[in-house]
């Protein structure tokens, strides 16, 4: 067997679960700074103290909630401030803005473990980290850092490509699918025009096919034991009431026979004592 040479394997590839990256400190600072930056851009009509307070609250929740609260904040801002049928998000600027927000969400969620790790430390150490970063005092293990840089670059490029694709697909979907304004017209067109019935049936078939594919993926992932357990669970769920009745009946019978046995023994003992001569009792 052609075994790989263990010495070739870089020591950072397999690392203890608690160990963090070389760039951990910098990443934490960047996550916090970018999240704070985007949060400060929201709701400009609100006063600075309130914005500062809300930003601090949202940053504090990032340890457990990741980017959820940031997303809700951005959505709330869009909900209250974006005018209906606005053309602001129609072109490339809109796509870029959405791309940046989703990238920020990805950035926050990818570094959630680091945030948790940082949050477990005292606050002074985090401030100390920020100060040392600004002073340029953070010490790197150069060999480790050199190994991590290409990996990080590769991951960043893959993530950007993925998100760009997602935003474009969303844009295409939004343009293709009927919206509230055109829904009645589209529906009328589909009803009157015979080709639209075909479109509708195609859409329905697509949804059903996607549902089947999702289920098929789930089934293909099951191991043999999982499949057996699933069948067993389904059987038990269907026949639960009957089986429970049988089992309870058995247990009740067992308890009853045990009680009867005890009573029989007690009765036999009392008979024995009663038959004895009086002076022995």
């Amino acid at each position: 067997m052609n075994r790989p040479d263990p010495s070739v394997v870089t020591p950072t590839v397999l690392e203890p679960t608690h160990e963090t990256s070389q760039f951990g400190g910098l990443l934490i600072i960047s996550v916090l700074a970018s999240a704070a930056g985007i949060l400060f851009l929201l709701a400009p009509h609100m006063g600075w103290p309130l914005r500062f307070f809300l930003t601090a609250i949202i940053l504090l929740t990032m340890k457990y909630w990741g980017g959820v609260m940031v997303l809700i904040a951005v959505q709330a801002d869009l909900f209250f401030r974006e005018p209906p049928r606005s053309a602001n998000f129609q072109g490339a600027t809109g796509l870029l803005a959405v791309f940046l927000i989703v990238t920020l969400l990805m950035f926050i969620n990818r570094n959630r473990e680091l945030l948790k790790h940082a949050a477990s430390r005292p606050l002074s150490s985090i401030f100390g980290l920020i100060v040392s970063a600004f002073k340029g005092e953070i010490v790197f293990d150069s060999s480790k850092a050199v190994r991590q840089v290409p990996q990080m670059l590769g991951a960043i490029i893959r993530a950007i490509a993925l998100l760009v694709g997602c935003v474009f697909v969303s844009q295409i979907l939004l343009n293709t699918l009927p919206n509230r304004r055109t829904f009645n017209e589209d529906l009328r067109g589909w009803m009157l025009d015979e080709t639209s019935v075909l479109q509708c049936s195609l859409l329905l078939s697509g949804i059903i096919a996607a549902w089947i594919v999702c289920h098929e993926i789930f089934w293909r992932q099951l191991t043999r034991d999982q499949s057996r357990l699933y069948l067993r669970s389904v059987f038990l769920t269907i026949h639960h009431a009957d089986l429970r009745m049988i089992v309870r009946g058995r247990l009740h019978l067992r308890q009853k026979s045990a009680l009867e046995k005890k009573e029989r023994e007690a009765a036999a003992f009392s008979c024995r004592t009663e038959n004895l001569p009086e002076f022995r009792r």
Partner: peptide, 28 residues
């Protein structure tokens, strides 16, 4: 959850930005 809620609200209020952001999140 906020993605679905944002998409629904965006469709109802015809807010393109909210729709695009929420749908991008769901597609992602």
């Amino acid at each position: 959850l906020p993605g679905i809620a944002g998409l629904s609200l965006g469709i109802l209020r015809e807010q393109t930005g909210l729709m695009l952001l929420s749908l991008s999140l769901l597609v992602w």
